[in-house]
Amino acid sequence: MGLNEFILGLNNLEKITRAPGFFKYTKHTVAAHSYRVASIAQVLGDIEEANGVSIDWKSLYEKSLNHDYTERFIGDIKTPVKYASKELRGMLQTVEEKMTEEFISQEIPTEFQDIYRRRLFEGKDESVEGEILAIADKVDLLYESFEEIVKSNPEEVYMAMFIESVQTIQSYSHRPSVKYFFNEIFPELLNKDFYGREHFIAKIDQIHD
C-alpha cells in the first residue's frame, strides 16, 4: 500500500467534467478547476497579507489544491440534483465521506493517513484559509459562467450561477480580499462589450452596489 492510487486519482480528475451538461463553449474539468482555485486562493491570500492578515500558506495550498479531490469517487453531481433537498445533499456528503475514509484506510500508508484525512475532508471552515477557499471557489465559478454569458449562451443557468457566486462572495465582505475583489477586479471583468451587456449589468446592479 503506497501513494500510487492517490496519484492515479489525479488522472481521474482530468476526465471528470465539471458541472456536467452545463458548460457548452468551454470544457471544464475538476482538475483544471482545482488548479485555478489554488491560483485564485494564492492571489486572495496575497491581498489578505497586504492588509495585515496572517496566512497559513501550507494550509491554504492544501485546502485549495485538494478541495474537490473526493469527486473522483462520485463525480461532480449536477447542481440542481445536488441541491434538490438538504436530505439529498446530506446523503451525498455522507457517501463521499465514507468512500474517502475507505480510500484513506485502504490506499494511504498508515504513517500518512492523518495528513490525508486533513487534506481530503471539508476545507471550507471558519479559519481564514477556509474562508479564502470558499471565496476562491466561487470566484472561479463566476469566471466560468461569465465566459458562457459573453459568448451569448442563452441558457439562464449561467446568469443564475453568476448571481449566486456574487452573493456568496459578498457574504464574506468582512475579508479584505473580498473588498479588493469588488473594488478593483470585478469592475474590470464587467468592462467588456458583449451582446446583452446592458440587461446583464442591470441584473448585477440589483444584487451588487
Rank of each mutant, 00 (worst) to 15 (best):
F121N: 11
R119A: 13
L190W: 02
E122M: 10
L88C: 08
I40L: 10
V53T: 15
G21I: 03
L10G: 01
D125H: 13
E14R: 12
E96T: 07
G130F: 10
Y35A: 10
N4C: 05
F186P: 01
E144N: 03
E131H: 13
F112L: 10
E87I: 14
Q42T: 14
N12I: 10
A160G: 10
I7E: 11
D76K: 08
G196Y: 01
Y158A: 03
K192H: 08
T29K: 00
F200R: 01
A134I: 01
V178D: 03
L60H: 01
I55D: 05
A84G: 00
Y180M: 02
Y195Q: 09
E62P: 00
F112M: 09
V95L: 13
Q167P: 01
N12K: 11
V178K: 03
P187I: 11
T110Y: 07
I204R: 03
F182N: 11
L189D: 05
V150S: 01
Q106N: 15
D76M: 06
F162W: 07
I204N: 09
G45F: 11
K63R: 14
N51W: 10
N11L: 12
R18P: 00
L44H: 09
K203L: 13
F103S: 13
E48V: 05
V166L: 15
G130I: 12
K27R: 15
I149E: 03
G9E: 02
I77E: 04
I149A: 07
G90W: 06
T94R: 07
A31H: 02
Y180G: 02
A31R: 04
A84R: 09
G2M: 06
E148P: 06
Y25V: 13
